[in-house]
Design a protein around this nucleic acid. Structure first.
Lengths: 207, 207
DNA sequence: CACCTAGGATAGGAGCACTATCCTGTGGTG
DNA sequence: CACCACAGGATAGTGCTCCTATCCTAGGTG
């Protein structure tokens, strides 16, 4: 199909498609003639992926570009998934400029929970977050961290067993990124509700 | 103190302070003469609050403005806290344009968890999120929701008991908003780590 | 032959959070 | 009394991001 049809089928304006082509998010079509290019299903899927990552997950163009480049570069699945996690959960956004890294409390969590003791982005992000919270005067006690980690452990256990990785790379990014984001948001919303509920309870009692 | 001194003490540029004044985020100083205004500690605190809400929590000017207006308007604490939750956790961002609201699964959670059955922002947001996920083809099973809710219930229980509400309104917003945001981020990061850990476990086993 | 299209270049625009400039008037200092 | 720093108001500009629009040429299509 041609650019215009691609646009109509995906609901993305021709101008935006051209923009994505320029930015390298969308591979160029097969040039049939000097003034005719042919786009395939692959392009349509890719376009939908881009839209989902932009509008649902909220990634910016550069982030999407780097994920897609990895995928197209044939990076190993685990690496790709790690990159997705890093990007979607903003694990590399937190300033890692902590000269004074005291005993990282995150590592204690890992040991206590008996999680595999492997350095990872998530772990760095956790330590960074804890440092950040400390520096902002929001204390995180060991008990709290313990309760949190126990809870997320249970979530992750339930979560991981319900996952099947698709074969197509577009599909993989789609499910992983969108799923990760939506599940994160879901937990946040549940947490808000739980928090509100407990607050109401407490408030009722104190009347 | 004068505007310039206020700027030096808080590290916020005079131009920005003027901007906040224009936007109504910062109340005008006490006009001493036609060309002299006097700012107090209150202004400095307010300015720090604005900075925290912008840079740490990531709220935009309009959101900060509406929270501050509520606070200054002498809104009841519970209402203010509800508004903070709504704003910080983005509870009112999700498109609420769901004409087809099937049996809201979120309500089932509430009943099952024995949370107080009160309509709330958090609950609407939860139902909206579930609808959203369904429409995006990300299934949420009852079991998953159950595991999630149990986990967040535990978190909330631990969390709420560690909370003391300060008297000053500025302080209240600061702790509530910043705390809410940081705790949410913490949970997200822990979840990422737990998820990665379980994935590694699973990967090891399958070798 | 009239018309459409791809692709390249370049410019425009909207939204956001500032940032800078200019202006007027005036209080306090020297 | 002269002068300069400063408040406050108005207005415009900046940097960033993500598009969106216009213009162009060359080349197929009915």
């Amino acid at each position: 199909m041609q650019l215009k049809e691609l646009s109509e089928r995906t609901g993305v304006s021709p101008a935006s498609i051209k923009f994505y082509l320029r930015e390298g998010l969308l591979p160029a079509g097969r040039t049939v003639h000097a003034t005719r290019a042919e786009y395939s299903e692959h392009h349509a899927n890719r376009l939908e992926l881009i839209q989902a990552l932009r509008r649902v997950v909220g990634l910016n163009i550069a982030q999407i570009g780097s994920l897609l480049k990895m995928a197209d570069g044939g990076a190993p699945r685990l690496e790709l998934l790690a990159a997705i996690q890093r990007t979607v959960l903003g694990l590399d956004e937190v300033g890692t400029e902590h000269g004074e890294l005291r005993t990282p409390a995150g590592d204690a969590v890992v040991r206590f929970r008996n999680w595999p003791d492997v350095p990872s982005d998530a772990r760095n992000a956790l330590n960074a977050q804890l440092a950040r919270m400390e520096s902002l005067g929001v204390p995180v006690t060991a008990e709290l961290l313990d309760a949190y980690s126990q809870a997320v452990d249970a979530i992750a256990a339930t979560n991981i067993s319900a996952t099947t990785a698709p074969d197509d790379v577009n599909q993989l990014i789609m499910t992983a990124a969108v799923g990760m984001h939506l599940h994160g948001q879901l937990v946040l919303k549940l947490l808000a509700l739980a928090h509100a509920s407990h607050a109401i309870r407490r408030y009722e009692k104190s009347i």
